[in-house]
Design a protein around this nucleic acid. Structure first.
Lengths: 239, 239
DNA sequence: CAGTGGTCTAGACCACTTC
DNA sequence: AAGTGGTCTAGACCACTGA
């Protein structure tokens, strides 16, 4: 736990608990330096983090203010989630998550997958197709491709539960970043069955993702197709 | 133009032009300090920016590497776009953008809108409903709410073209950040007509947005409902 | 062990906002 | 004019990677 991390966490708590209220000014940076007994750069690093989370705004000459956030974004859990990498199981923490594995095989990478995973065209990759349930209701169909060279030891047991927990917990690899794109689409006939969607009843939200380890290696290319009523993607952009 | 900005721009160009190639190592930070004749903190600020854009990865002890990005994310225009605030007109730069204004009125803020815009329940807000065309094909229906107190002088002329250009160009206000959420939905009957979608043919991607000025004021709450074949939302998350 | 990025200090000066 | 954040310097020491 670094200094800037604990400072960011402390300020975040004070915002969520109402010590620092919406649209009010935070102590100035030099005051925070004295409060936490650190240099200004360290305070600024902590504040930078909160700006990127969308919690505060800084105004040169005026001060640092708590953003008034309402609605879904108010919920700290939701806001944080979109910026984390726990995978589905940890996003739904505290609820009963179950996976139905439709397919779990090694196959020669299709061209697009080889390109996305940065492996050669004739390389074998691990392919997993699952429907994921929360409290016995189907939420999402995931099509996942992973390289076989350094993501090893994946078993039926692992794919029935959490791949992310296995990668970070057992393989001790660190997930660092992800590139995502979202689009709307209609479910295929197969997906209508898996997701229990009646014909024409509901679209899906497709999240295409390429995910990176902290050493830069790509460990996953996936498409997750969510029931429209089960998922919203949240993002914050700061210029 | 600050030093870190021009350094970031220079390195970005070198990546796009192939001087620094995918999966190769950038010069070390101290070498970049000498190259640009700046301190290490300044170099790091430039690199931080590129990390958040998803262009590079830093590995302690090993070096800084160019991320191998393929597909849509390869396109510098697309990657940058998702992180900018030009609005629809500037996103589609170089193409013929046209708006059909369905409604443009002042009305008392509905409860949810008042909450999102942080105005009182009986305040008047500006409401605009438009279909936006690119090269005469309908792309998106936008429902936009703005406060009337500091967003003044909006005319039929403005809403037919670019609201963002008016706000930044004429009112000289600076757009700083935006909170967005994306979900899939079916178009309403009205939207099917506006977007020229046949019944059951295609869903819409809805982007709900709250946008902030650099002084922290909220100037827009909107829902944009895109034809599914016309829009993809791109994001990069870094832990 | 050498190379490299991560964290941190203790300042300085400037640009902007607010009064 | 005073207050405040933005940019920048010239270092220091540490943690981790890879040979």
């Amino acid at each position: 736990m670094f200094k800037y991390e604990s400072i960011a966490a402390d300020i975040q708590n004070k915002i969520y608990s109402g010590v620092y209220q919406a649209d009010t000014k935070l102590p100035q940076e030099t005051a925070l330096c004295r409060l936490y007994n650190v240099s200004r750069i360290t305070v600024r690093e902590a504040l930078d983090h909160l700006v990127r989370q969308g919690l505060i705004t800084r105004r040169r000459g005026a001060g640092t203010y708590v953003k008034p956030i309402v609605g879904e974004n108010l919920c700290p859990r939701l806001l944080a989630m979109s910026q984390q990498f726990g995978g589905f199981t940890s996003d739904m923490k505290g609820r009963n998550v179950r996976s139905q594995v439709h397919e779990f095989t090694l196959l020669r990478a299709p061209e697009k997958v080889a390109e996305k995973l940065q492996v050669s065209n004739d390389a074998f990759v691990c392919y997993i197709c699952r429907t994921r349930f929360v409290d016995d209701a189907p939420y999402v169909v995931e099509y996942t491709y992973m390289p076989t060279d350094f993501i090893s030891g994946i078993t039926q047991e692992v794919v029935s539960h959490s791949i992310y927990a296995y990668i970070e917990g057992t393989l001790k690899l660190n997930i660092k970043s992800a590139h995502r794109s979202a689009r709307a689409d209609l479910p295929t006939e197969q997906e209508q069955k898996w997701l229990q969607i009646k014909k024409g009843e509901m679209p899906v939200l497709e999240i295409e993702q390429t995910a990176y380890l902290d050493d830069g290696r790509i460990f996953e290319y996936s498409k997750a197709r969510h029931r429209a009523d089960c998922f919203t993607l949240h993002t914050v952009s700061v210029r």
